[in-house]
Amino acid sequence: MSLRFVAARAGMLVVTVLVSSLAIYGAMFLTPGDPATLLVGGSRDPDPAVLAQIHREYHLDDPFVQGYWHWLSNCFQGDFGKSLVYRDSVADLIDARAGDTLALVAYAAVLVLTVGIVLGTVSALRGGRTDALVTTVTAGAMAVPTFVMAVLLIWLFAVQLPWFPVYGSGEGFTGTLSHLTLPAVALAMTWIGYVAQVTRTAVRAELGAEHVETARSRGVPEWAVIRRHVLHNALGPVFAVSGVGIAGLFATAAVAEQAFGTGGLGALMIEAAAKQDMAVVQAVSLIFVVVFVVLNTTVDLVSAALDPRTAQKGAVR
């Protein structure tokens, strides 16, 4: 993996974050009228003193670029401002909710990796009816949106079969695990389908590779052929799609959090948007963008390390 490839990916990360943050900050100014009125709930007759305070606090009287840079630099120092709706520091609000989102995404990521890779591997190795069944199920999982899956899971496992709670994030390890099972499954289901399909394709491609046939002709045990030659060489594309999937879990976590009332960052952003609490919306949006871009860049770098041809193609482009 060349330094040029690493520098290119790092540059793309910085540019993506800057452009996204500019769009997040500038969205407030696209609304007609004084952006400060959004921060007081769009009141028709806001207190001029309150508006003046908001202008000073958010630097709305500054030139756009200067105000944007002041906001962005404060954000990267951990100062996201103050929520006028919740009457609390935005950083404290995020700190109180971040754990729920991380727990949900971690649970969903474990499901994506374990279930997706196992299903894809079994499908490729066994073939026949097993392959057809797994392909059909995973294709169906990919087609069902998260909010639809959430409704189906609630109906089946909370109404018809009252096995799991459907609201809140629980307390303690056992309680948290029980409360997050359904939202984690709803969140992970689409990416389980993607990972299973990519794993199946990668494993089947390696099964017909020349080096696998050579290993078999030398009398290497089948289990060793599968582990050392097939699964090891199929790791690259599987890791790539898994990494993108885990990054995608952060992007769609808000749907599962809202459906099951787990109270994470996604739910906080939706609640803040409904109340026009722009300071919270901007901060959470920026965090999601940074996490998503960093994870995708990390996946690119690790994929290039696993398969140098990826780095060579990226350097050529």
Rank of each mutant, 00 (worst) to 15 (best):
R9W: 13
T16G: 03
A27H: 09
L30C: 14
L38M: 14
G42Y: 06
S43L: 15
P46K: 03
Q53E: 15
G67F: 01
G67C: 04
W71Y: 14
L72R: 07
D100R: 10
A103Y: 15
A106L: 09
A106S: 11
A109L: 06
V112T: 05
I117G: 02
G120L: 08
G127T: 11
T136F: 14
V137C: 08
V137R: 05
A139R: 08
A141E: 02
M142E: 01
T146S: 06
W155L: 14
L156C: 11
G168H: 03
G170P: 10
G175F: 03
L180P: 06
L180H: 07
T181E: 05
L182T: 10
T190F: 00
T190K: 02
E206G: 07
L207H: 07
G208T: 14
E213T: 06
A215L: 06
R216F: 09
A224K: 15
I226A: 13
L231Q: 11
V238A: 03
V241T: 04
G245Y: 03
F250D: 01
A253C: 00
F260C: 03
T262A: 04
A274E: 13
Q276L: 13
V281G: 02
V291E: 01
F292Q: 01
N296F: 02
A304Y: 06
D307E: 07
A311C: 09
